[in-house]
């Protein structure tokens, strides 16, 4: 009985998130496609001549961009998820993890829906449709777990220190340019390579590009790295969430 009810709650919270996101804009869902598309056009206009070394630059940018935006949107939303749902957390005895979970669920749905038209564009940009694309499923799953962990860390800390969310919004664009989205790792001068190398996003982007750009089975190297990064993030998230969750109600 309890299980059935929980299912409804999950369903309605995801539904609510999606409705709120798109309901009152004329273009609705298409805004979420327009955003990466604008980025893509800007990048093509500005950077494609700057980085002639990158083969098939449009596909390179787009594959990274789509996944970056998922990361950026989802973590931004997750960083305020507990604050946003303060009323619900204080009024209903529902596991507090339900709120970030459904928030991510909503983000994942809109990401996947957006991925469909972008895959079509990628096809015209030269992406080969093969069974290798199925590797996207575990890649997206792993990436989502990573995003969820980062989001839980930000969201939990944000309850106590409200500027965590603001700081995250501020460093987000910086992180964008520190990640090899518009450029590639190889182009980075030797002495700055470490910055990219220690950026978790770099490894995930390479993993994604193995499938979407190179069109191959994800290489063991990046799979290993991403598994490691995700595990560390998960452990950290559990630790911070456990430490802070009992103080949520008094600080929300």
């Amino acid at each position: 009985m309890m299980q059935i009810k929980r299912r409804y709650i999950i369903f309605f919270l995801i539904y609510k998130n999606l409705q709120l996101k798109y309901k009152h804009s004329v273009l609705g869902f298409f805004w979420s496609l327009l955003h990466p598309f604008m980025y893509l056009l800007i990048f093509l206009a500005i950077f494609s001549t700057a980085f002639p070394a990158i083969e098939n630059y449009p596909l390179y940018v787009l594959s990274g961009l789509v996944f970056w935006l998922y990361f950026s949107n989802a973590t931004t939303q997750l960083s305020i998820v507990f604050i946003k749902n303060a009323h619900l957390i204080k009024s209903f005895n529902i596991s507090k993890t339900m709120y970030p979970l459904t928030e991510l669920g909503g983000e994942l749905v809109s990401f996947l829906l957006g991925l469909i038209p972008f895959m079509v564009i990628m096809y015209f940009l030269g992406l080969e449709f093969s069974l290798n694309l199925l590797y996207l499923i575990p890649v997206i799953l792993l990436f989502s777990i990573f995003i969820f962990s980062v989001g839980i860390i930000l969201g939990s800390l944000n309850v106590f220190l409200r500027d965590v969310g603001i700081i995250w919004n501020t460093i987000n664009p910086a992180l964008f340019y520190l990640s090899p989205i518009a450029y590639s790792y190889q182009i980075v001068p030797e002495k700055f390579k470490f910055i990219v190398k220690y950026n978790p996003m770099y490894h995930f982007l390479e993993l994604v590009r193995d499938v979407l750009y190179v069109g191959q089975v994800p290489s063991e190297h990046y799979v290993g790295r991403c598994l490691l990064i995700t595990s560390v993030a998960v452990v950290l998230a559990i630790f911070i969430y456990r430490k802070t969750r009992n103080g949520f109600i008094s600080n929300l």
């Binding site: 409705q19 709120l20 309901k23 009152h24 009323h87 204080k90 009024s91 209903f92």
Partner: peptide, 14 residues
């Protein structure tokens, strides 16, 4: 059935 804060969860846009 808790009614602890009135309108908890009411979304004005919906």
């Amino acid at each position: 059935s808790p009614l602890l804060t009135l309108g908890a969860g009411i979304e004005l846009e919906l």
